[in-house]
Amino acid sequence: MPAPHQSPNIRIALPDDDEELSALDRGTWSTLHAVTPRPQPPYAPFFDERHAPGDHLVAELDRHIVGYVRLAFATPLVSNAHVRQIQGFAVADEARGRGVGRALIRAAVEEARRRGARRLTLRVLGHNTPARKLYEAEGFVVEGVLPEEFFLDGRYVDDVVMGRML
């Protein structure tokens, strides 16, 4: 395992990253952030017609992918083309607490700006305190709450909409 002070390398995903990203996604699945059922074999490819490699930034430590963030258009509307949305974010358990998530969010902000966005938004489950604190520390603010939007693990969970200007 790399030294704790090592900064992750952030890059655009490549088609060859599919299997490693799929394994990371399965390995980090939790109702803390996932609203879909736990993935079951046979596993679908990570990339598909809606989520291309170029829509993802990956974080590497010692040439292993330890995190990713997915940037997408918030909607297909031309009038909304100035907004990007984080529609996926994961950090491997062994890389948590080492700045990987923060580096990915900062890179996502810069990449969205580079792609011409004026705003960056995301949705996070109300009970996901670690993610919410990270987003707030990186300039995101709560813009709305959908109360009890999901029923997970026997309880209702809020869906929190957050955003920031670029």
Rank of each mutant, 00 (worst) to 15 (best):
L71P: 04
V66N: 06
P4N: 04
E19R: 09
A13M: 08
G126S: 01
N80M: 15
L71Y: 01
Q87M: 13
D16C: 14
A117H: 01
V35W: 14
V160H: 10
A137V: 00
R63F: 00
R11L: 02
R84H: 15
R26W: 02
L57I: 03
D62N: 13
D48C: 05
E136L: 11
L14T: 13
V66D: 02
V160E: 10
S30E: 01
I10M: 07
D93W: 07
V124A: 01
V157M: 09
K133I: 01
L166H: 02
D16N: 13
L77V: 07
N80Y: 12
E111H: 07
T129Q: 11
V35T: 15
E49L: 05
P130Q: 03
A81D: 15
R132P: 00
L61D: 07
I105D: 04
R11A: 09
D159W: 05
Y156F: 15
A74H: 09
G126V: 04
R164I: 06
L71M: 08
V145C: 05
A117D: 04
A3P: 02
L21P: 01
R102Q: 14
T31D: 13
F89S: 12
S7N: 05
L122H: 03
R164M: 14
L134P: 11
N9I: 09
Y156C: 08
Q6P: 03
V83F: 05
F47H: 02
Q85M: 10
V145D: 00
A107S: 09
A3H: 15
Q6T: 11
P147R: 15
V124T: 01
S7A: 15
G101V: 05
E143V: 05
R50N: 08
F46C: 12
E49P: 08
P2Y: 05
V124Q: 02
H64I: 06
E94S: 13
P76W: 11
D158R: 11
G144V: 07
D18G: 05
P37D: 12
R38V: 08
R70N: 13
V157F: 02
A131N: 13
I86H: 08
G101Y: 12
V157H: 08
D25M: 13
E49G: 06
V78Y: 06
R106V: 04
H33T: 07
V161E: 06
P45C: 02
L125G: 01
F150Q: 02
A92P: 11
E138V: 01
I65W: 00
I86G: 07
T129S: 04
I10P: 03
G116Y: 03
D153I: 07
L125F: 09
A107V: 04
G88A: 14
P53I: 08
A117G: 00
R84P: 00
F47Q: 03
K133R: 15
T129K: 02
G163L: 06
R118E: 14
D55W: 00
G27R: 10
F151H: 15
R84D: 04
L77C: 10
L77I: 07
L146V: 11
P8D: 04
V78D: 06
T75G: 02
E143R: 08
E111Y: 01
R119P: 00
A112W: 04
P147H: 13
